[in-house]
Design a protein around this nucleic acid. Structure first.
Lengths: 257, 257
DNA sequence: CGAGCGATTGAAAAGACTCAACCACCGTGG
DNA sequence: CCACGGTGGTTGAGTCTTTTCAATCGCTCG
C-alpha cells in the first residue's frame, strides 16, 4: 500500500522546517476516500472534489513529526487521511498544552488561513500518519465556489469553540483527578478502543502528552493514574490504557451533579 | 435619552425567564449607531442595515440581568448597544466561569444560531445596558444576502477560538497570581480606564466575578489582590481597581519569559 | 436597629508541584 | 555479546499553592 518515491520532499521556505522530514506519499483519491463520510472536504460537489484531488499533495509523517508550527504561516490546509494528530500550544514557560486531537478525515490549519494569520498552535503526529495538503488557492476557490462550504466550516468553528469553552471551565474548576478521568473518557470517545469495550484505548500517549492534555505535570499524572489502577478503574500495559470501570470513571469525573 | 415605554416586555415562552425583567427601550437606528465603526452588523450594505434596524427590538437591561441562558434556545442575535456584558458558563458544581466580556458594538449569541443549537453559555449585564435583538429570520437573511457577512462572522469565530485557546493554556499552566495579573491587564485592554492611564479601570466587577474570571475562589482572589496592593502594583477604591504599575503587572503576568 | 450580603482575614487541610533518586527498557557502539 | 548511556516512567519527601471552613467587618436596606 505504501508506494512512495523514497525521496525527501522539498518545500517552500515557509514550511521547510515543519515538514522537512515528511516523505511524499502516493496521494489517495478524495473521490474514493474512506473518510468521505466523515470529512468536510468530501461533502463537496463532484467538481470540487476533483479539483481538491488534483491539486493536493500528500505526505507520510512518522510518529512525532511536526505538521505545522505555531508562529509560521499557513499556505494550505491539511486533511488527515490516516493516523492521529495532536494540536498543541506552547505556554510561556515552554511547556506544551494539548488543545485537541484529530483523527482520520479531519482537517487542520484552516483557521489560520481564514484569519489570514500565522498558526496559533502546532500540530504533530502521535503515530505514523498520512496527511494530505490542499493548497490555499484551492481552499479559497472552494470557499467561493460552494456557498455551503463556509457554512460547514463555520459550524466546525462553533463546535470547536464550544469544546474549548467546556475545557476552560474544566481547567478552571476541576481538580486533576477529575480532569484525568474526563480526559480518558474523551480519548475513548475520540479514538475508541482496540477491540471490545474493555480492551485498551486505541491510542497510546506518552505520560508527558497525557499530562499536557490534562494540564498537570508528569509526576502528578503518574500518581493519579496509579490511583485509578489501585481503584480498579483502569489497567495499563506499557503505554496502553484499558478502561475497566467506565461508570466508575464517569463518577470520578464528576460530570453533572 | 432614555425613552422607554415603562412596560415590562413579554416574549415567547422560550425566553420568558431570561428577559422577563428587561424593559423595552426606544431602539437606536443602526444607520447612525455610534458603534458603527466597531460592529460587524454595521459593516453591512445600506439595505441590510435598514432591514436590521426595522426588524430588531431593543431592551434596557439593569445591571446583573440575564440576556440569555445556557441550555435555552436562541431566536435571534443580540447586539450590545451600550453597556458591558459577561459571557459565562456554569460548571458541574454550580460555580460560574466567565468566558469573556463584551462591550458596545459586539454581537452575542450568533454561535448557537449558526450551530442550530441551544446556548452553550449564558450572558448577563455587569452594568445597565442597552441591547438590541435581531430576529433570527433577519440574521439568516443577512447571511444569504451578503456573501461577506458570514466571512466576517467566521473571522470573529476564529478570533474567539484563538482567545479561548490562549486562555486554556493559561488556566492549565499558570498560577493564580499570574492569571490575575493577566486578567487585570485584559480588563484594561477591553474596557480601558476611566480617565488617564493611571485612573481606575472603566469596569467594576464583584470579587466573585473576578474570581470566576481568573479561575479561583473568592478568598484566594482577595488575598492575591491584597498582595498586589502591598506591592504597589494596584490600588483599590471600593470595587474600582487602579493599575499603578503597568510594567510591574506585565512582569508578574510572566508573559513570554 | 437588625438582617443580609459582599469583602476580608486567619488557620488548617488538601492538592499539586518540585527536586531527586531510581527503575526499566532500548538501541548503540565497543 | 555486553556495558553503556539515554529516555521515559515511577516513587518518595518536602514545599508551596490553593482551597476550605470559620469568623469578622462594613455597608445597605427595609
Amino acid at each position: 500500500m505504501v508506494v512512495n518515491s523514497g525521496k525527501w520532499t522539498t518545500r517552500s521556505a515557509y514550511q521547510d522546517r515543519t515538514v522537512a522530514m515528511a516523505q511524499q506519499y502516493e496521494k489517495p483519491y478524495c473521490e474514493s476516500c474512506e473518510n468521505r463520510m466523515h470529512s468536510i472536504i468530501n461533502q463537496l460537489d463532484v467538481e470540487s472534489v476533483t479539483k481538491v484531488s488534483s491539486t493536493k499533495g500528500c505526505h507520510l509523517y512518522k510518529k512525532g513529526q511536526l505538521i505545522f508550527e505555531e508562529g509560521t504561516r499557513p499556505n494550505g490546509i491539511f486533511c488527515l487521511h490516516k493516523g492521529k494528530v495532536k494540536v498543541y500550544k506552547t505556554g510561556d514557560q515552554g511547556k506544551d498544552h494539548i488543545l485537541r486531537f484529530a483523527k482520520a478525515g479531519e482537517i487542520l490549519g484552516y483557521r489560520s488561513l481564514l484569519r489570514g494569520d500565522a498558526y496559533s498552535a502546532s500540530a504533530a503526529t502521535i503515530e505514523d500518519s498520512v496527511v494530505c495538503c490542499i493548497p490555499q488557492e484551492t481552499f479559497f476557490e472552494l470557499l467561493e465556489a460552494d456557498r455551503t462550504f463556509l457554512k460547514r466550516i463555520s459550524r466546525l468553528l462553533t463546535l470547536d469553540l464550544r469544546q474549548a469553552e467546556n475545557q476552560m471551565v474544566r481547567l478552571a474548576q476541576k481538580p486533576v483527578r477529575e480532569r484525568l478521568a474526563e480526559a480518558l473518557l474523551a480519548l475513548k470517545e475520540i479514538y475508541g478502543t482496540e477491540d471490545g469495550d474493555n480492551s485498551p484505548l486505541n491510542i497510546s500517549l506518552s505520560r508527558e502528552d497525557l499530562a499536557n492534555m490534562v494540564g498537570t505535570v508528569i509526576e502528578t499524572l503518574v500518581r493519579t493514574l496509579a490511583e485509578f489502577k489501585r481503584e480498579r478503574l483502569i489497567a495499563t500495559d506499557k503505554k496502553k490504557i484499558r478502561i475497566l470501570d467506565l461508570d466508575g470513571l464517569v463518577h470520578v469525573a464528576n460530570v453533572h451533579d
